[in-house]
Write a protein that binds this DNA or RNA. Sequence first.
DNA 1: CGGCTAAGGCTATTAGCCTTAGCTTTATGG
DNA 2: CCATAAAGCTAAGGCTAATAGCCTTAGCCG
Lengths: 189, 189
Amino acid sequence: MPRVGLTPDQVVGHALALIDEQGLDALTLAAVAARAGVATPSLYKHVSGGLAELRRLIAVRVTEELADRLAEAAVGRSGDDAVAAVLRAYHAYATEHPHRYTALPQAPQPDDDLTHAAARLVGVIIAVLREYGLDGAEAIHAARTVRSVAHGFASLSIGGGFQLAEDLATTQNRLITVLTTGLRTWPTP
Amino acid sequence: MPRVGLTPDQVVGHALALIDEQGLDALTLAAVAARAGVATPSLYKHVSGGLAELRRLIAVRVTEELADRLAEAAVGRSGDDAVAAVLRAYHAYATEHPHRYTALPQAPQPDDDLTHAAARLVGVIIAVLREYGLDGAEAIHAARTVRSVAHGFASLSIGGGFQLAEDLATTQNRLITVLTTGLRTWPTP
DNA sequence: CGGCTAAGGCTATTAGCCTTAGCTTTATGG
DNA sequence: CCATAAAGCTAAGGCTAATAGCCTTAGCCG
């Protein structure tokens, strides 16, 4: 029984590959173990919490990847341009890895790592909003608005929620315009 | 073994009660059967496709309930007022039945019934948009925008996506203002 | 009233999964 | 060179969904 030299990160990597290829329902410890070349119980040496912890780790990883993509998209842009780029990057990530994105909300309750990763993602958005003169509590409300729009569009899009024939890119353009207009004329009380 | 007199609708009802009380993961045929006072295999007499079909039926039912709620909220209102009411009703439904709402995107692929129910929901939104002078393809894009905002906010809200202490109702107010402003100044090309 | 059919229950079984327990081997550090 | 901890294994228990086959009830039709 030669050592495989597995690490928790590698286990998550195999799990993500599996999800990408066969969907979220195919995520079983048995399948991950087979892909890693290891017997199922051996996974507990690296992911002691079993399937629940694996799902948690997946959510953390996906959140980090998403935050990276948004940060990349925002760099070197400002204002409406940056917001548009962030929204497109968000949707692009979800479209490229639909099952992976669907795995995101499946985490039981948020733990420290997930909260940290989510905070980084929110940080990227808050940074983009700085050019609109939004800060403090209003920046939080605006960031929530951006996330709602981005997540809602991505989620419905990959979930088959938009069944009609109308062009999706056009919808995305309208959505971006609505959002940027809303941010520019932000309803400060 | 007295007859229980089960119907598919009743099975879905038991399943929804179970989901509401114990979450989506607790949805198993065994648990539904126990609640219905029946052995597990007996469920196949009413829901021949097993767990997959049950999930499909649940998605249809929830979509119908949601469409009902939105229609109720919209009646007797118009313009921004109607849009605001629809958004609040959407969020209220998701908040009242968080697990049920989470069950919505779990349907495998959309079938005829689900498409029909979704069409009714979209119909309610399109009707609300008529007062903005939007029709044809632009009405579709606008309806998608409304759904994206409503779903995104509801989904993040019940999924624990908004962890900071800022008031959620305020975020909702800002979101509604951004959306209605966007609809009034709709970017027709 | 008698009997037939179909529907709605049941038990038993199989296959697959997660998880724990306990053993064995490998690698590594002193 | 050996001790120990890490990393693998097999075995077993308890879930689950799903299928097969049987039995009983309800209701209808002659």
